[in-house]
Simulated scan of single mutants.
Amino acid sequence: MRKPIALVILVAALPMLSACGQPVADDKAAYVGEWHAQAMDVELTKDGTVRYKRVRNTTAGATTTTSINAPLRRFEGDNFVVGIAFLSTTFEVSTPPHREAGTWKMVVDGVELTRTP
């Protein structure tokens, strides 16, 4: 009987837990903004909310979409970790935010993104 009650409490607490992101530190402020590529979008807000969407084509010709809307947990070097409690994912940043010919760019999970002005 206790397991269903614990599950109900956990499910009820998820919206509250997901609102508890870590604000972006000043030394990582360049990450804040809306970043776009042809099949990938990442938004990182100053208050620590991350929204992610990626569309991929499979070898069978189908399309899969992955979406995440979760709090920022921390930065690990240039990478950032997103999620709640025991559910998290790390976004691998191989090229951190930088200006290139007046445009902000970074590479996340192998995809070059451009920040919307």
Rank of each mutant, 00 (worst) to 15 (best):
M1Y: 06
K3M: 09
P4H: 03
L10W: 04
V11Y: 00
A12S: 07
A13T: 02
L14V: 13
L14W: 11
P15G: 00
P15V: 03
M16F: 14
C20I: 13
C20A: 13
Q22E: 11
P23L: 10
P23S: 03
V24F: 10
D26S: 11
D26G: 01
D27V: 01
K28T: 02
A30V: 01
G33P: 01
G33H: 01
E34Q: 14
E34N: 08
E34V: 14
H36V: 13
H36W: 00
A37D: 07
Q38N: 12
Q38H: 07
A39T: 13
M40H: 08
D41N: 03
L44R: 00
L44Q: 05
D47P: 04
R51A: 14
R51E: 15
K53L: 11
R54Q: 15
R56Q: 15
R56M: 14
T58W: 04
T58D: 08
T59Q: 13
A60W: 11
G61K: 06
T65W: 05
T66M: 02
I68R: 08
I68N: 04
N69A: 12
A70F: 00
P71A: 13
L72R: 00
R73K: 15
F75P: 03
F75N: 05
F75I: 00
F75M: 01
G77D: 07
G77R: 01
G77H: 09
N79Y: 11
F80T: 05
F80V: 03
V81N: 05
V82H: 04
V82Q: 06
G83R: 10
A85T: 06
L87Y: 07
L87A: 14
T89L: 07
T89V: 13
T89H: 12
F91C: 03
E92H: 12
V93D: 07
S94L: 06
H98E: 04
T103M: 13
W104Y: 14
M106D: 06
V108Q: 13
G110C: 08
G110F: 10
V111Y: 07
E112G: 03
T114C: 00
R115W: 07
